[in-house]
């Protein structure tokens, strides 16, 4: 319950921040959008659109602006400055693409990361360990906007296997974006899994199990593994932020029509209501997903349950 209250508080704060920044940032947003030489009528119209002044042209205090923004966005009456369509309608149309991409990246990371971690821990100090750790190091240090074009160079240009841009080729279009986005998370998963297996493996009950004469394989899969996979959930929670922010970059490179690309397009078009809408939707998802991973973590490990 207190968690839910916290989410409400955070979202309230986030909406205040997003509207407030536009209000408090030095310089008039109207100047920025229209340029300094705008006519008085154009300025007035945009100021009204942005909720900065009321119908008579009197400036609105921030509280009034904020209430106006919230009431518009909650009734889906917040309109794009360029296309005049409701911001949330547009976002809803693009959101599934981002969700598919994020989900595919997480699934990819969950499939690859722990597996590599288990292998590395099992063959500790041997070549699979070194190889796995090297791949993980790459995953952590290669920026997404470097990895993605390199993948394009190899798998779209040199060997034209996957499409270079867009989302029209079904699963084939998804492979490279999901890989670029999920690789870092896979690397962190691998490191955590490896470390926690090694830690668990050195603990007493495993030593006991070994001493009892259980085979190495049984010890691993029955005891070590079960306890070591806990961090998987933690890592998803930890890396979710960079995943969502990275989606903006990945969507740009692959022309993937999600809300990250929508955000960049709207910034280019100085479509502030749309930009605000997208930023808030991403923040909302992030907060909710964090709540979910916290809950999941509690379910798996009763020891960390906080009341």
């Amino acid at each position: 319950m207190s968690k839910l209250l916290q989410v409400l508080w955070v979202m309230l704060g986030a909406t205040v921040l997003v509207t407030g920044l536009l209000h408090w940032v030095p310089g008039d947003p109207v100047d920025y959008i229209l340029g300094e030489q705008a006519t008085q009528e154009a300025r007035l119209k945009l100021s009204q659109d942005l909720g900065l002044v009321d119908a008579e042209g009197h400036p609105v205090r921030f509280v009034g602006q904020y209430v106006g923004f919230i009431s518009k966005i909650s009734q889906n009456k917040l309109l794009s400055y360029r296309t005049r369509e409701p911001v949330m309608t547009r976002i809803a149309a693009r959101l599934p693409y981002t969700m598919i991409l994020a989900l595919a990246s997480i699934l990819f990371a969950l499939a690859l990361g722990p597996l590599l971690g288990i292998i590395a821990a099992w063959r500790r100090g041997e070549w699979p360990d070194y190889l796995g750790r090297f791949v993980a190091l790459l995953g952590i240090s290669l920026p997404k906007f470097f990895l993605a074009p390199m993948l394009l160079l190899v798998f779209s240009i040199y060997w034209p296997i996957f499409p270079i841009s867009g989302a029209t080729d079904g699963l084939m279009s998804l492979v490279l974006p999901a890989f670029s986005l999920g690789f870092a998370m896979a690397a962190v998963q691998m490191r955590f899994t490896r470390a926690s297996i090694l830690e668990v493996a050195s603990q007493d009950y495993i030593r006991t199990a070994r001493a009892k004469g259980l085979s190495e394989r049984v010890v691993y899969f029955k005891h070590a593994l079960r306890n070591a996979l806990m961090p998987v959930v933690t890592v998803v929670g930890l890396e979710l932020g960079s995943l969502l922010a990275g989606a903006v970059v990945v969507e740009k490179i692959f022309g993937w029509p999600g809300i990250g690309l929508l955000l960049l397009e709207s910034i280019e078009q100085l479509d502030m209501p749309m930009v605000q809408g997208v930023v808030l939707v991403i923040a909302f998802f992030y907060v909710v997903m964090n709540l979910f991973t916290d809950w999941l973590y509690d379910q798996i490990d009763p020891r960390v349950r906080v009341t």
């Binding site: 508080w9 921040l17 947003p29 920025y32 922010a245």
Partner: peptide, 24 residues
């Protein structure tokens, strides 16, 4: 700390991106 929580609601560089977008 509740104020810090608000800033943490924006994943990664998203908030920096938003601020950069409204500044020149």
């Amino acid at each position: 700390m509740r104020f810090v929580d608000i800033l943490l609601a924006f994943p990664g560089i998203l908030l920096a991106l938003y601020i950069a977008a409204i500044l020149k």
